[in-house]
């Protein structure tokens, strides 16, 4: 790739956002970062990943957490900042990558080379997708979906000014149920290409 491209993908659980992000990374031949981010950070700093992963993309625990002058004893919060710093460093270095979640649309908002996307979906389509993907009954799929989205929302909103999924925080919000995964990817590629033209 010549110029830098950062694609930030926020997603509702079951919307196919992860698959879409992966397809975009493949199309542009750039690094794909999801939950492996923590592993990468641990490797870079010679830390024990097994110890860190339990705090990844989780909200801080109230009552047993205290904040002093902007610093907190919450591992969840501190490790989130550690990942944010890592992403910023990568962006400053000029690396191109697709990043899933991790408040990336907020953390990297100052980078003009970033395109932020939020993928949502119709509830019935998402339930169907979760049932197929995880081999679950409808009630269990709904429960899992609601739990995951609740956690993502809490995590996001505790670190960012804007709200999770609010279209005002993203360059483009797309309902993957309307076009299907493949056509959503195509539509996003068109959009990203147009944006890249304007970045230059």
């Amino acid at each position: 790739m010549g110029s830098q491209l950062i694609i930030s993908v926020g997603r509702e659980f079951g919307s196919g956002g992860h698959v879409i992000a992966e397809a975009l990374a493949k199309h542009y031949d750039i690094q794909f970062i999801d939950h492996h981010l923590m592993e990468e950070v641990a490797l870079e700093r010679n830390l024990n990943y097994e110890e860190l992963k339990e705090y990844d993309e989780k909200e801080k625990k109230p009552i047993i957490t205290r904040r002093i002058r902007g610093l907190s004893n919450s591992p969840e919060e501190n490790l989130a900042y550690l990942q944010f710093d890592y992403l910023k460093k990568k962006a400053v270095k000029g690396d191109s990558f697709v990043i899933v979640g991790r408040c990336s649309e907020h953390v990297l908002r100052e980078f003009k080379t970033m395109v932020s996307i939020f993928v949502l979906g119709d509830r019935n389509c998402k339930v169907k997708r979760v049932m197929e993907r995880y081999n679950l009954k409808e009630s269990a799929a709904i429960k899992l979906m609601d739990e995951k989205d609740f956690k993502r929302k809490r995590y996001h909103n505790s670190h960012c000014e804007g709200k999770w999924g609010d279209s005002r925080n993203y360059d483009i919000s797309v309902n993957s149920s309307k076009l299907g995964i493949d056509d959503t990817v195509k539509m996003l590629i068109d959009y990203i290409d147009m944006r890249r033209g304007k970045m230059d």
Binding site: V41, E51, I64, I68, S72, L82
Partner: peptide
């Protein structure tokens, strides 16, 4: 405890921001 005094919070936060988690 980790939340008992300001120094505790600051020490734990400084360590955790470098990846050294100090659990309760």
């Amino acid at each position: 405890t980790p939340i008992g005094a300001s120094a505790n919070v600051v020490g734990i936060a400084t360590a955790a921001r470098e990846g050294y988690v100090i659990k309760w």
